[in-house]
Simulated assay, not measured.
Amino acid sequence: MREESGAWIAMHEEDARLVKLMRGFGERAHRDFQSEMLRRAGAPALTLEDGARPEPPAQPDLELRDGDLIDLPGRTLRAIHTPGHTPGHVCLFLEDAARLFTGDHVLPDITPHIGIYPYDRDDIDPLDDFLTSLDKVAALGRTEALPAHERVFDDTAARAAEIRAHHEDKLIRLAAVLAEPLTIWEAAALMRWNRSWEDLSPMLRGMAAGEAAAHLRALETRGLIRRLPEVDPVRFVAVDS
Score class of each variant (00 low, 15 high):
Met1Cys: 11
Trp8Tyr: 12
Trp8Phe: 12
Met11Glu: 15
Glu13Phe: 10
Glu14Thr: 03
Arg17Ala: 15
Gly24His: 01
Ser35Met: 14
Glu36Tyr: 14
Arg39Pro: 08
Arg40Met: 14
Gly42Asp: 10
Pro44Leu: 07
Leu46Phe: 15
Thr47Glu: 15
Glu49His: 11
Gly51Asp: 07
Gly51Arg: 00
Ala52Leu: 13
Arg53Ile: 07
Pro54Asn: 08
Pro57Thr: 02
Gln59Lys: 12
Gln59Tyr: 11
Asp61Tyr: 03
Leu62His: 13
Arg65Ile: 07
Ile70Asp: 05
Leu72Cys: 14
Pro73Tyr: 07
Ala79Trp: 01
Gly84Ser: 05
His85Tyr: 13
Thr86Pro: 06
Gly88Leu: 04
Gly88Cys: 00
Cys91Ile: 03
Asp96Arg: 04
Asp96Glu: 13
Asp96Cys: 04
Asp104Val: 01
Asp104Ala: 08
Asp109Val: 13
Pro112Asp: 04
Pro112Phe: 08
Ile116Trp: 11
Pro118Gln: 03
Asp120Glu: 14
Asp120Ile: 07
Ile124Asp: 14
Pro126Ser: 09
Leu134Trp: 04
Val137Ala: 00
Ala139Thr: 05
Ala145Gly: 14
Ala145Tyr: 04
Ala157Leu: 02
His167Val: 08
Ala175Gln: 14
Val177Ile: 14
Trp185Gln: 00
Ala188His: 04
Ala189Tyr: 00
Ala189Glu: 11
Leu190Gln: 14
Asp199Val: 03
Asp199His: 10
Met207Gln: 12
Met207Ala: 13
Leu216Cys: 02
Arg217Pro: 05
Gly223Cys: 07
Arg226Tyr: 01
Arg226Phe: 02
Arg227Leu: 05
Leu228Ala: 07
Leu228Val: 05
Pro233Phe: 06
Pro233Glu: 08
Pro233Ile: 06
Ala238Gln: 11
Ala238Thr: 09
Asp240Lys: 04
